[in-house]
Structure formats: C-alpha cells, structure tokens
Design a protein around this nucleic acid. Structure first.
Lengths: 207, 207
DNA sequence: TTAATTCTTGATCGGATGGTCAAGTCCGGT
DNA sequence: ACCGGACTTGACCATCCGATCAAGAATTAA
C-alpha cells in the first residue's frame, strides 16, 4: 500500500535517476545558464530520454531549482564554520582556504550561482534575503567584535565578506579569463591561495 | 558618388540608429545574456522593428559582438593609466577607485563581460589572449618591479590584478546579492571604496 | 503467476524566435 | 519635381525546444 495519507514512496529507481539527472543538470546549467541549457542536452548527458526527465521533474525549471537547492546546502558550510572563539586571522585564513578549495573542486557550483545571481537571482531571492542574510549578519557581527577588540584592523565586515567571496570565486567563475592571461600552471590555485591569504592577513593584521 | 572603391558611406540615419540599437542591446544582453535576449526585445526597447534591426546587423550575434567591442574600448582605460612612474600605493588606490566608479556608473557593461566570460568567452577569446594579455603582462611587470624595489609588499602581480578586478566588479555583477544582504544605503559604494582601498593599501604597504 | 504500479519512450503539438522577402516609404542630390 | 538609393515593415518561413500523451516495458507486491 502506498500510504493512505497519499505519501508517495521513493523507489530505488527514482533515487538513482534523480541523482543522475541532477549531476548532468549541474554540468549543463553551469555551462550554458538556464535559458541556454536544453532538456535534451541534460537527457543525453545522463543517458535518459527527454520525456523521462520530464517524468521525474515536471518542468525544466523544476530541474534547475532542484540543482540549485541541492548545491546550496554545502556551498555555505565554510562560512558557517567561522569560529567566533578562534583566533581572528587564523579563522579568516582558514575561511579563504576552504573557499579556494571549493573553487577548485567544484567550479561548476560556483558558476551556477554566479549565473543565477548575475541574472537577478529569480529563483533564490527568498534564500538570499532569508537564511543567507541571517548567516552573513551573524558572522559580520563576529568580525565587528574582533575589530572592536583590536584583534583585527577596523573594516566594514560585510565588505570584507564580499571581498573574500569575490576573490576566491573569481578563479571558478572567470577561469577562462584567468587561463587566457596566465596559462595553466599546475600550481595555479596554490599560488592564488598564497597571494590571497597574505593579502588579506596583512591587510587585516592590527597595527 | 559613393566611392569607386566601394566604400559604403555612413549616413546620418545609420549612425543614429546603430547608436540606438547598441544602447538597447547593452541593456538587454546584460540582463538576459546572449541566449536569453531576443531580437524583438532589443527592437522594442529602441522603438524599431525587428526586420529593421536585422537590416543594420545581419545576425543577432553581430549585434552582440558590436556591443562587446563598443564597450571593451573604455573598459580597460583605468588599467592603461596605471603609471609606472607614480607612487605605487597611490597608483593602486587610484586604480581601485576608478574601477569602483565604473562598477557604479556602468554596471551593465560589467555584467555583459561577466556573462560572456562565465560562458567561456566564445566571442572574445582572441581579445583575451591578445591585447588584454599584453596589457596585463605589461602592468604586472610594473607591479613586480615595485615589489622588487621594496615599495610594495611582495605579491604575485597577476593575482593582485585579479583580486582588484574581482572585488570591484563584484558590486556590479552581484549587486542583487549585495542589496539582498545589506539593503541599499545611499553611501554603499563609498563605503565599499573605503573598505577596499584600506584593505589593499594595508595589505600591500611594505613593512 | 498475476495484477497493479512504476517506469520509459516514439510521436507529436504549440509557441517562441532568428531570419527572409517583397513591397512599400522616405530622403538627398540634381 | 524627379529619380535612385537608402530605409522600413507586415507577412512569412524554418527551426528549435519545452511539454504532452498514449502505449508499451519493466518492476514490484501478493
């Protein structure tokens, strides 16, 4: 019995195929954007037929939203783990390192968000103004306290957070430009990490 | 006579309408990207008919490329004016200021490029690997010399340039997110400028 | 095995959109 | 005024693409 309450059971095949679809969708959407991507592309990439995709997700937009939400979860973990009880400069260094690592390991997720926000974030405005703002304001307060205690050079915390986001995600979002300008040295991201951490640490170290 | 050499004369109406089209196209392409924009949207925005647009630009892509090139010209002026003979920290401060001003005054141009590069820069790879790389390498050499002379904390110049681009353009490209997180205070960009200049100057000032 | 349910897809529809064309209107030079 | 070229556009075409549906295949529960 599939539940008198009407709860649709999740079958083995469902879980498998939804996973397949979301993986393929991340690749396609991150490369071409929502409008630029086609359901057929995603279907081909994961070896399913187009009508089959639309059996699991009724509309193209549903796939897109699902990918966004699926990816949003871990995207903010690094910021969440910024420890108010830690040493300010160490915490910020650690934060930059994890953001750089995410840019290297999951550039597609970065580009997916970049594209979404660039186009006005129609699918995630609620998220931006809700959970994200809450988290950011909370961490901004921590940074502000560090500054007040003289453990960090005074800086407007939100702008510091923006600066860290911008610089680290730049290597994922604009990697075509980066590679056009400095090629593809094997230690590119290590050099980037070193440059950014030193820049921020020295820029933030109290006199 | 319109020239025996076949040189097509540019009439008054041509100049006027091409200008109209390019202005409308910048708005539309920067909002929706190449795929997302429609010729009809551009036509409506500038009060011309769709076939009329395609009389001046044969294909949609021609409009897009024309807008890109038209905008690329002034986009790099600030970097060009980085003066090797100037005081390093002053020059970099001035550069950040002009980049911030461009983000405020012409965010559409910034978003147009961001979108283009995000999607692999199919229309401007030659430009990136050619003229842009030349300019950037030249200025990187200047920065490297400043560091060697002890007038700047040692830093990998290309990554410094990336960091300045990323942080300043962030306010144009991701302004939806910025406003979702800190609202729209009238002095937003002034505060941003202050935060960024202090961060970079202190991060780069030699010990 | 059997029957119900879930899964899969070829065929197709309908709207959107880039691009064409023929027929007309406007403008500038003489 | 007149003429040739520049400009403008309504109607149209071809294609792409999201979405639907009916019919059949596979899976599961009994």
């Amino acid at each position: 019995m599939s539940g008198t309450g009407g709860t649709p059971r999740t079958t083995r095949i469902q879980a498998l195929n939804k996973e397949l679809i979301l993986n393929a969708a991340l690749e396609v959407f991150s490369s071409y954007g929502f409008r630029g991507a086609t359901v057929d592309q995603i279907a081909t990439k994961c070896g399913l037929s187009k009508p089959n995709l639309l059996y699991y997700f009724r509309r193209k937009e549903d796939i897109y939203v699902a990918v966004l939400e699926h990816t949003l979860q871990d995207w903010l973990d690094p910021l969440r783990s910024l420890d108010p009880a830690g040493e300010p400069l160490e915490e910020i260094t650690r934060y930059i390192r994890s953001k750089i690592r995410m840019s290297r390991e999951n550039p597609k997720a970065s580009r997916l968000f970049a594209n979404e926000i660039l186009h006005g974030a129609p699918a995630i405005t609620d998220y931006l103004k809700g959970p994200l703002k809450l988290l950011v304001d909370e961490k901004a307060a921590v940074i502000r306290r560090w500054s007040a205690e003289g453990r960090l050079r005074p800086i407007e915390p939100h702008h510091l957070i923006f600066a860290i986001w911008a610089t680290t995600q730049h290597y994922a979002d604009f990697d075509v430009q980066v590679h056009a300008l400095i090629g593809t040295p094997p230690d590119l991201m290590d050099t980037a990490e070193a440059a950014l951490t030193s820049l921020f640490v020295e820029g933030l170290r109290p006199r």
